[in-house]
Design a protein around this nucleic acid. Structure first.
Lengths: 290, 290
DNA sequence: CCCGGTTACGCTTGTCGTAAAGATT
DNA sequence: AATCTTTACGACAAGCGTAACCGGG
């Protein structure tokens, strides 16, 4: 189970072709074939069907492990490298779309900062593997509870802000004139699932008895404005931080009364924080909003 | 960053000796020396001090990654192996001490079941790496919230039971006659930290504003009776499931009123569940206590 | 001087590329 | 017939063990 073999395996699985994987990895076709053969011999199981090329059940199972594994491996390498490396001169800050809030915009105007907006799930990985120096992630959580983040690496975590949640309804919606709504009252409604840009519905469901709101439309992308437009146009409901929902321009924002959830933003930072990164982190982290 | 090199590195770090690690791993001293040299060359950093042998700061950082990494690697191997292997004839069930509750004892009298009580943190690893077929873990959580478990591998999770919490006080304690207590009232008290046997205090602290109760005495071991005896003798307070605290025989159990936490038990099971394991899992998982 | 880690060297094994063969659409 | 994977084989590098070396208590 050499990491190289694993890397080849995921490349072949993703591309559906030995030769394409070989091109991508800078090997010959032959080497790729040998890698897969070695893996299959090691695990004593077929991992790929040939012609067409695709993972077998065992291969699917292995793929589920391979991703996190290779990620952690990169994270480990990046982490020790950071210890020796000089503090970066230009900071790269990774943030999920809704983590870009007023607090960040206030602090940002520092020289040499790059803001990189990523899908929520990729932010921890980006920080862990050294692609970014700091990360800001957001998500739903019980008040003053930490977010449930995938632990790709031992990262430092600090709460940055917590904000009320609201549902963005189209103007004519029966609940649009209410002062607040309960999620269970909207359980049968159509929701837009936007795990990258909006709040992940699956996380919200964990707090409810049921499996959470059922999505009707899925939006992949990181543009919050487009998401708001969809919701205002009546394609489905969206859960957003209250200020964002109210600033949407169209649609009606109704605060969420139950379950007791907040929109929480957290700062992620790698172990050995030095220089400008440490300074920015200190400014961001100190007052965790009530 | 070959896993073999990593394995050698953690062995050397743990044993504090190249030769001892060589004996343990079945290599020669020389090979171990070469392994470490290769790792240090690869990462371009010293990882170990020699004479005495111990990890450098970079080595410490790498060690934090190496453990989970090697664990995941074993988990991956075990997971695909389980797909091909025949369903086990004798089930091995891993459980943290407080996960052994009435529900389990009711169901257990099946033929060929081994119950293995492990420290809480080791249960997920035992299930993931195939040492055990099923796992039962417990911990504090907000009502109907899943536990925060380290994700060593993609394991199946199912809620099994939730129970009230209580503080076990010595007989003469000022709060001993109360009907219920709030944790913040006891914030200044002396607590026993028993992460293996009792409830992990750090997890409880996450729900509070402060860093959680400060431990005074630390108990390492998995014997709940001994822990209760310590608490009853006045060495510190202990947080326990209410039934356990009440059955302690000595001391006084006072239910916890705030924060709203419950003692939650969850079943862990690997992906391809077959045969007797699937049957037992089905019996255990179906009615998640309110 | 002894214990323990490092270095040198030879052998074995593994890994890659080239090229020919085999299989599938 | 064309495309893509597998197999054969030779060159090269990597990994391990034996043994000599070296540095600190």
């Amino acid at each position: 189970m050499d990491p190289h073999l694993l890397r080849t395996f995921v490349a072949v699985s993703r591309l559906g072709s030995f030769s394409a994987a070989a091109r991508e990895l800078g090997y010959t076709q032959s080497a790729v074939s040998q890698h897969i053969a070695a893996l299959e011999a090691d695990l004593r199981t077929g991992l790929l069907t040939r012609r067409p090329v695709g993972p077998t059940p065992a291969g699917v199972r292995l793929l589920e492990h391979a991703g996190p594994l290779l990620l952690r491996l990169d994270a480990a390498r990046a982490d020790v490298a950071r210890l020796a490396a000089a503090p970066p001169d230009t900071l790269v800050l990774a943030a999920s779309p809704l983590a870009v809030g007023p607090r960040l915009l206030e602090v940002l105007p520092a020289a040499g900062v790059t803001l990189r907006v990523l899908p929520r799930a990729e932010v921890p990985a980006a920080v862990a593997t050294g692609g970014c120096d700091l990360g800001l992630v957001d998500g739903p959580a019980a008040p003053s509870d930490p977010l449930r983040l995938p632990d790709v690496a031992p990262l430092g975590v600090a709460g940055v802000a917590e904000e009320e949640l609201a549902v963005l309804l189209p103007a004519g919606h029966p609940f649009a004139r209410r002062a607040s709504v309960r999620l269970e009252d909207l359980a049968d409604a159509r929701w837009i699932d936007a795990p990258d840009a909006g709040m992940p519905l699956s996380g919200v469901g964990g707090a409810l008895r049921s499996a959470g709101p059922r999505p009707s439309l899925r939006y992949e992308g990181t543009d919050v404005r487009a998401l708001c437009a969809l919701a205002a146009a009546g394609h489905g409901l969206v859960l957003l931080p209250r200020r964002v929902a109210e600033a949407a321009g169209a649609g009606v924002a109704v605060p969420l009364a139950a379950p007791r959830l907040v929109h929480r933003t957290e700062l992620l930072f790698p172990g050995g924080l030095t220089g400008a990164a440490a300074a920015l982190a200190a400014v961001l982290r100190d007052p965790p909003g009530a």
